[in-house]
Nucleic acid binder design. Structure first.
Lengths: 248, 248
DNA sequence: CGTTTGATTGACACGAGTCAACACCAGTGG
DNA sequence: CCACTGGTGTTGACTCGTGTCAATCAAACG
């Protein structure tokens, strides 16, 4: 690998998309060119709100963002996490207006990519088009898995499953080691994600610690016994559709 | 409208896609041509199973199908309904294997469309491509709404919300009147969808009936007081992204 | 250092699951 | 044409997972 290539591969956006298509060096350069001039965004800042019309694609380079809705009674539901390498959407604004909001949870590094740039990139580059399309399919697959978790997994297993997923996803883009990653979420945010109260999140975290499945130190989460954790959660990474080559 | 056009518009696939793009008569003909030779499929029959590689796109013309998973402990989770006009997916098999199963819930009329036909249609027809793309976005939007329902709506409101959604979706394709539609699901299937036990589904249905929100006669479900039902459920049809023209 | 936000804990209430019995069909076969 | 039968709907009793409320602690922050 050339030095230049090394640089390219350090970008979580490019790293992630490598799983979706066989990119060439030229592809990587073009994708990397999209990520210049990121901006720092404070924690808890909306990138776009429900009912607004999207203009740009929002790409996360660092930090945690999420898709969320606030229901009539004020309750919040987090429907997806956007971790480094994830982006808000890449299609033309076919839809009239956003049906949900996207906001940062932590201080983040965000790139706003004009939709036109994405469109022309897709039009002229089948491999990049395939990779972006793949990312879209994975997002849908994750939502299905979350639906299954919400519906039929007990809260403790659901949380364990989420941690397994985050470990794999963050490891893919170089933001996790084999067993630990930074989890910068409050217990209330975790509760809004898996659909339970923050008090119960606290109890379940204690239970997982007592069971020797996880360990926490400030914002770092370590999965102490990954095989047992995966077994407990019923976690099977297939739905993340990572190619065998990089999954290992 | 010509008589021919009338015929075209009687097809739920075409009717639905009209919401996603401004189709021409030629577009409609091409879409209609895909739906010839449907096959009858018995209730509770898998169209494709988890871990299999998809070959065809499965389009529902009549009946209810669903996306579902069976978890390690045998519990089933239904993550989506496919009602007339809905289809399984339209992209090339970018993903190695299915991460979920698709099966009929009721006797159905299904068209198996070779993926190649879809691909060539997309390649040569921007409006159809847009319409299919729109359908994909709406599927994702529905999943997000379901996630919000599972996470932060009480079971009774969640079920009410589901009924509101089904009314709108089925009405769109001519399978519902202003207030009623055929709901051919068992209480167990409803429970697997909203994540509660079939016993509790039964209790909630009684409650909704007692509250004068719904009425049931064999398999027909009637929403007695739609404004009150929508208010109770916190239902806002925006997320279905139907064009204003047809939504009314 | 106060101040504020997030984590932790206990008491109590309630939604929802489980189990089990029974009722109610619809289809089936004699 | 009518018992038989299996699937589905209904009900009650009991248990338990989770929510709510509120107080207290701990930690981050200006």
């Amino acid at each position: 690998m050339t030095q230049n290539n090394e640089t390219v591969c350090a970008n979580p956006f490019v790293i992630r998309l490598e799983h979706g298509a066989e990119l060439t060096d030229d592809d990587r350069q073009k994708l990397l060119a999209l990520t210049v001039n990121p901006r720092r965004v404070a924690a808890r800042t909306d990138l776009i709100r429900e009912n607004e019309k999207p203009n740009d694609v929002h790409l996360v380079l660092q930090g945690f963002a999420c898709r969320y809705k606030v229901l009539a009674d004020g309750a919040r539901s987090i429907m997806a996490f956007l971790v480094p390498g994830d982006f808000s959407h890449f299609q033309k604004p076919l839809l009239d207006a956003m049906d949900h909001s996207i906001g940062t949870l932590t201080p983040s590094l965000i790139v706003d990519i004009p939709k036109g740039e994405i469109d022309s990139l897709i039009a002229g580059n089948p491999r990049i088009a395939q990779a972006l399309w793949w990312a879209n399919l994975v997002d849908a697959a994750i939502m299905r898995e979350w639906l299954a978790s919400m519906g039929r997994r007990s809260a403790d297993r659901q949380l364990a499953h989420l941690f397994c997923e985050l470990l794999v996803r963050l490891k893919t883009v170089g933001f996790a080691t084999d067993s630990s990653f930074e989890l910068p979420l409050t217990q209330e945010e975790i509760g809004d994600t898996i659909g339970i109260s923050s008090v119960h999140v606290n109890r379940i975290l204690q239970q997982l610690r007592d069971d020797g499945l996880i360990a926490q130190r400030t914002k770092m989460l370590r999965i102490v016994d990954l095989p047992r954790m995966m077994s407990f959660a019923g976690f099977n990474p297939n739905y993340l559709h990572l190619s065998a080559r990089v999954q290992s």
